[in-house]
């Protein structure tokens, strides 16, 4: 990725979305020809390249109860810039994430979406030579303030990684890890936490008879759900997910997506994904990153069907990235 200072990098000129007949997945007849950008609520079937997403929203389950974007944000970034040594990876990102919602970060590889995600629980602190400017707020508190306890922050802002990372311990000890390092020694309490979290992560029924077995014996999809259960055990408010399903097969991916939808009731979820269908399926809000900048953020349905920025549209219609 080249991080030049030009805010509007050149992109190949493309015809504006308009007359377009190559929508092979649209089974409804569409011979009418000229149709401007469609709103998904219209009766007519969508015909633009964006139409594929509009179709997704026809049976959208996240339509009801879209969180109110005006309520106090759970997470907020103000003019956040981030540097790996001399190289600037994020440019003045300003964003608000409302509570109990799913926000998806999309964008091409190297656009800074993962880097930004990792600034939200200070995971980048571990990498040497990184620097941050601007502000990141959790419940209104600056998480980079000198008096912030990073350990407490990370308990409140959990994270699930692309590659499942079960510890080489039993399933029980994996989930109980967070409470145990926090000082919980009571086996009965730990047992309750483990059961609750495994149930929430939709893994309990598969593992309840073998909690003492090694977590490494689980399948990839199960390991990832175990990692989600493990994150839930520290009782976080926010779950950051860095491409949680990109290494999984479609069935496991579907389970993770169902899970995200369930977890939204209790947690604020931020998910980085390469898969735009996934972003459209699971998220309430979508943010599009490009070359270290936040190009556009909006309600997922709006962003995918009526993007304001040309670049967003080019990306989600697959013209680059």
């Amino acid at each position: 990725m080249t991080l030049n200072s030009s805010p509007q990098p050149e992109t190949p000129s493309v015809p504006t979305p308009g007359p377009n007949n190559d929508s092979p997945d649209m089974n409804t007849a569409n011979k009418s020809g000229v149709v401007p950008k469609l709103r998904p609520t219209d009766e007519q079937p969508p015909t633009t390249a964006l139409g594929q997403f509009a179709k997704l929203f026809q049976n959208s389950r996240n339509e009801p109860g879209v969180p109110n974007p005006d309520q106090a944000p759970k997470i907020e970034a103000q003019d956040l810039c981030f540097f790996y040594g001399e190289k600037q990876a994020l440019f003045n990102v300003t964003i608000k994430v409302p509570p109990r919602s799913v926000t998806a970060f999309i964008g091409p590889s190297g656009c800074g979406k993962s880097t930004f995600l990792r600034t939200l629980n200070r995971m980048n602190d571990i990498i040497e030579g990184t620097r941050l400017a601007g502000k990141a707020l959790f419940d209104g508190q600056d998480i980079y303030a000198p008096n912030v306890d990073v350990v407490q922050l990370r308990k409140k802002v959990g994270m699930v990684f692309q590659k499942s990372t079960p510890f080489p311990k039993s399933i029980f000890d994996n989930v109980a890890y967070g409470p145990m390092i926090a000082g919980q020694r009571n086996r009965r309490v730990l047992g309750e936490i483990v059961e609750t979290c495994l149930k929430r992560a939709a893994l309990w029924n598969e593992v309840k008879d073998r909690l003492a077995e090694s977590a490494l014996a689980l399948s990839g999809g199960q390991q990832q759900r175990l990692c989600i259960a493990r994150s839930l055990a520290t009782n976080p408010d926010v779950l950051l997910m860095d491409e949680p399903a990109s290494a999984l097969d479609p069935a496991s991916t579907a389970r993770i997506e169902d899970l995200i939808f369930e977890l939204k009731q209790n947690y604020t979820i931020v998910i980085v994904t390469h898969n735009m269908q996934q972003a459209a399926r699971v998220s309430d809000f979508t943010a599009f990153f490009f070359e270290g900048r936040l190009i556009e953020i909006g309600e997922t349905q709006t962003l995918f069907t009526r993007p304001k920025e040309k670049k967003t549209e080019d990306y989600i219609t697959g013209r680059f990235g």
Partner: peptide
């Protein structure tokens, strides 16, 4: 030991000693 394991542990609120 893969770094992912360390990151996962840090993300659960571990200190360096943990």
């Amino acid at each position: 030991v893969p770094n992912g394991l360390r990151e996962a542990a840090y993300a659960l609120g571990s200190t360096k000693l943990d």
